[in-house]
Design a protein around this nucleic acid. Structure first.
Length: 612
RNA sequence: GGGAGUGUAGCUCAAUGGAAUAGAGUAUCGAUCUUCUAAAUCGAAUGUUGUAGGUUCGAGUCCUACCACUCCUGCCA
């Protein structure tokens, strides 16, 4: 009966996006999906074939006492079928055969149908997970070419707190898409082109000429200082401004000396960025703004050929629908400045065009701060007008809020400077180290320096990542070392501790989880066992949801709850002291918990610790 | 002026497609270590979901107006 659903006509409500179609139909048949299929079939039998195509409205139960899943569909049928939800549910029930999966379903007073999963069914499902390294999360059958544009620091500047969220969120999104089997291109759209270079080269030429010809003549910190001085001169000194402008022209014209200098600056920055990326375990393919530079004239020419360009005050503009200025006139997207130069809008248009045509992107994701929402809406609109975006290509701006200090204002150092990413990570690791030492002393534990360094590094970095990922992306978030390193609550250390606890059981019992009997029966008797098993089985639904909604905090929430449920199990269900076959059954639950935590955390870019 | 976002417990945040009594954590108070790491668990208390209307059998969620804060608004990215 499940297959009727897959092979039959697809309900129209699934077609609200191509993606959703993939998401729901390719995967292993989760419990929720099976129930949906069964309810759909029953709807057809009870009320007529057309009703098998409506949304069956099967969702996780709102409260434990209502069971595990609930069906709300008859509420929406009350009007068209001129009957009460309660009566309709009763009729539906007559055609509903869920005896393999659930206890006999019940109609609750208002008309909800409540499903409670049979422990025997959970035992079978959990048993099946044992031999599945993907823990029930199947790969999509038709992978998309996904492009995730994230991190994007600026050459000749240091990575700072402003790059934190894009880097961490983008990486996690990329990992999740990759795990689902999509072909993911992780692009680092670095700021490696434009007026800043003319400015910088002009300044270095007079102040520190060696930096333009020799590799590593300066370290990046100096470079940043020079950048600031150059910017200051640029803003204050008209002659310097002109010199800088000439440098840009030289560079853009491909003057070998200028190109060499530019190359040196980029290389130096690149190495600095790479240190941060290595530390955070982040892979990126660099394709900066300069990559698109040669393609910009053609983009403008193409827009002109398509009749989209209007010249206004010397600038070439594409006027937009739905955006107006203070006077109420349409707002332009400037694609070529009055001085003939191009700006980021042009680059972004060239990038979209390239990513669709050359990279074959199906789903293009931009992870940047929410402040750029307007910009992307405008660029996407123009791309659409210019036919750069076929209907089957989805472009999404994934916005995120600001990183704030405890005072609720933009995070700054004490002297009011932007916080360098390196310093921020160092501080987190340092504090993690101090916390660890305090704890070791309190518990009278002896550990090697290597252990302490390693644990502090993992805890510090994962705390920063988790604090960021566990909040709803779109709102601002308050950066607080004390909170993120806290050992309790929804924090990285709490999850890491749950994992370490599972591992400590195997160590104590000298058990190799990998060598447990794969055919051993899992027994679910205690509440805590049932609750834990049900939760483990929900992983695939959560991953799919994050894949479509691009909200990693949902995965964090899931892992936090998993940790809580494991701790409750740990508290109430002795493992090593139980008799067989219960002992092996519980060890299997432990192992599955550990694997789920490890997998889930890895999708957040977080490594686990065997001991901490 | 226009546009976007945010507004939920003292604090930090959830809330899946509108669904039964809006949930966690934290802080506070209390309980549990002869027991696999107590970094844990259990219990208590905490709300006019910014305001006012509307749609609906049902609204934190959808619509309208308003308030507060943040960001964007023609040659920066």
């Amino acid at each position: 009966m499940v297959w009727d659903f897959f092979l039959g006509n697809l309900p129209p409500c699934y077609y609200d996006g191509r993606l959703r179609f993939y998401l729901i139909f390719i995967d292993m048949i989760s419990i929720q999906t099976q129930l949906r299929a069964i309810v759909s079939t029953a709807l057809g039998k009870a009320f007529g074939a057309e009703y098998s195509e409506i949304d069956p409205m099967v969702v996780p139960a709102g409260r434990p006492e209502f069971g595990d899943y609930q069906c709300n569909v008859t509420f929406s049928l009350a009007k068209p079928l001129k009957n009460s939800p309660r009566n309709l549910s009763q009729q539906l029930l007559d055609h509903l055969d869920v005896s393999d999966i659930c206890e006999p379903p019940e109609v609750a007073k208002p008309g909800f149908i409540n499903f409670k999963i049979k422990p025997s069914y959970l035992e079978t499902q959990i048993g099946a997970l044992q031999s599945d390294s993907r823990l029930g999360v199947e790969k999509v059958k038709d992978p998309l070419k996904a492009i995730v544009d994230f991190s994007s620091p600026n050459i000749a500047k240091e990575m700072h707190v402003g790059h934190l969220r894009s880097t961490i969120i983008g990486d996690s999104i990329a990992r999740i898409l990759e795990f689902r089997g999509h072909d993911v291109l992780r692009l680092n759209h670095v700021g490696d082109w434009g007026t800043q270079f003319g400015m910088l080269i002009a300044y270095l030429r007079e102040a520190y000429p060696d930096a333009l010809t020799k590799a590593d003549a300066l370290d990046l910190g100096d470079l940043v200082a020079f950048y600031k001085k150059a910017k200051k001169r640029f803003d204050e000194d008209a002659d310097f401004k002109e010199t800088a402008r000439k440098e840009v022209v030289k560079l853009q014209a491909g003057d070998p000396e200028s190109l060499k200098a530019w190359q040196l600056l980029c290389d130096q920055s690149r190495r600095e960025f790479q240190q941060i990326y290595n530390r955070l375990d982040i892979n990126l393919t660099e394709r900066g703004e300069s990559f698109y530079n040669p393609k910009l004239p053609d983009v403008v020419a193409d827009l002109e050929a398509k009749g989209l360009v209007v010249e206004d005050a010397g600038a070439k503009c594409v006027f937009l629908d739905g955006f107006t200025n203070k006077e109420g006139d349409p707002l332009p997207l400037i694609v070529q400045k009055s001085d003939g130069g191009y700006n980021y809008a042009t680059t972004d248009l060239a990038a979209i065009r390239y990513r669709v045509k050359e990279d074959g992107g199906d789903r293009i994701i931009y992870v940047t701060d929410a402040g750029q929402a307007n910009h992307f809406a405008q660029v996407f609109q123009v791309a659409q007008k210019a036919d750069y975006l076929p209907e089957n290509v989805e472009v999404t701006h994934v916005p995120f809020g600001l990183v704030l200090g405890k005072d609720g204002k933009r995070l700054k150092t004490r002297s009011g400077e932007t916080v360098r990413l390196k310093d921020l990570l160092d501080e987190a690791v340092k504090r993690a180290y101090q916390d660890l030492e305090t704890r070791l002393v309190a518990e009278d534990r002896q550990e090697t320096e290597e252990f302490k360094t390693d644990v502090a590094k993992t805890i510090g970095l994962s705390s920063v990542k988790y604090a960021d990922l566990s909040q709803n992306r779109t709102s601002n978030y308050i950066f607080d070392y004390d909170k993120m390193l806290e050992l309790k609550g929804n924090t990285a250390p709490y999850l890491l501790y749950a994992y370490a606890r599972v591992q400590s059981i195997s160590r104590k019992g000298e058990i190799d989880y990998e060598k447990l009997d794969a055919d051993a029966k899992v027994l679910l008797k205690e509440d805590q066992e049932l609750v834990l098993a049900k939760h483990i089985l929900q992983l695939s639904e959560i991953i799919k949801e994050v894949e479509s909604e691009l909200l990693p905090n949902r995965l964090c929430q899931y892992l936090f709850e998993l940790s809580q449920k494991f701790n409750q199990f740990f508290e109430n269900c002795p493992v090593l002291k139980s008799d067989e076959p219960l002992r092996t059954s519980r060890l299997i639950l432990c192992h599955l918990t550990a694997q789920t935590l490890k997998l889930g955390l890895s999708l957040l870019g977080i490594e686990v610790l065997e001991r901490m």
